[in-house]
């Protein structure tokens, strides 16, 4: 399993007490597998992704990314784990205004201490894979919402991550463009062999997933893998 969450409990401070966002959640995703996570707003979907992305430490339970246990890792090591093994597709594209589409991807090489210039061919290749070959030199304000979201996805794959975490990627898109983005993620998951967790509120997109996990009030219900 490339991503494994075991018995993870996460609480947030809430007035005098604490609010349980994740309640003994366990989830394992193999490479090339696409697990969709659905659930009502506030059920804990984003919290689940944040824990898997090592952006927040759970109160208890364990997280392993590509076989690396994250508990006890120093912030610097966590950052390294994120840039090398985890790809994050944000709900909003979160592109940097001053960079062209290709540079949004090249920056992933730069933060990993590699030459952004040498990473350009790989960036162009990925942009082609998401259908943006012709728009590599455009800045975010020259791209449509759907195009930005595809740059967001390509960026997440730039450093060949083992795990791909996707948070409601279609929330800013119409249904048709949304479906295209989900199909793209499903295809890239197979091609790149990532363990993908896709959070979505749109049940129409679930066909692309291997399995669908449901969250409710911080509890995750995962069906046994079929087939």
């Amino acid at each position: 399993m490339r991503l494994e969450l075991n018995d993870v409990t996460l609480t947030y401070p809430d007035g005098d007490g604490r609010l349980t966002a994740l309640d003994r959640v366990s989830l394992a995703v193999p490479g090339g597998g696409l697990t969709a996570v659905v659930g009502p707003s506030g059920s804990g979907k984003s919290s689940l992704l944040a824990v898997a992305a090592t952006l927040i430490r759970p109160d208890s339970g364990t997280v392993a990314v590509d076989g690396v246990r994250v508990e006890g890792l120093a912030p610097g090591r966590l950052a390294e784990l994120r840039r090398r093994r985890i790809g994050i597709v944000f709900q909003q594209p979160n592109l940097l205004a001053s960079l062209t589409a290709a540079e949004q991807l090249q920056v992933m090489a730069q933060i990993d201490g590699r030459s952004p210039r040498k990473a350009r061919p790989r960036a162009l290749e990925l942009l082609e894979a998401v259908g943006l070959a012709d728009l590599a030199d455009r800045r975010p304000h020259q791209l449509s919402g759907g195009q930005r979201q595809r740059v967001n996805i390509a960026r997440a794959l730039m450093n060949d991550p083992a795990v791909l975490l996707v948070d409601e990627p279609t929330s800013a898109l119409d249904h048709e463009r949304g479906s295209a983005v989900i199909d793209l993620i499903a295809r890239l998951t197979r091609e790149q062999g990532t363990a993908t967790v896709l959070v979505t509120h749109d049940r129409a997109h679930l066909g692309a997933a291997d399995r669908v996990a449901e969250v409710f009030d911080g509890r995750l219900r995962v069906p046994e893998p079929t087939g």
């Binding site: 610097g76 950052a79 390294e80 994120r82 840039r83 920056v107 992933m108 933060i111």
Partner: peptide, 16 residues
């Protein structure tokens, strides 16, 4: 700040 948050989430170290 938002750009910094994104870069950190993507794995940029605070030192960089």
């Amino acid at each position: 700040g938002p750009d910094v948050a994104v870069l950190k989430a993507l794995g940029a170290s605070t030192g960089t």
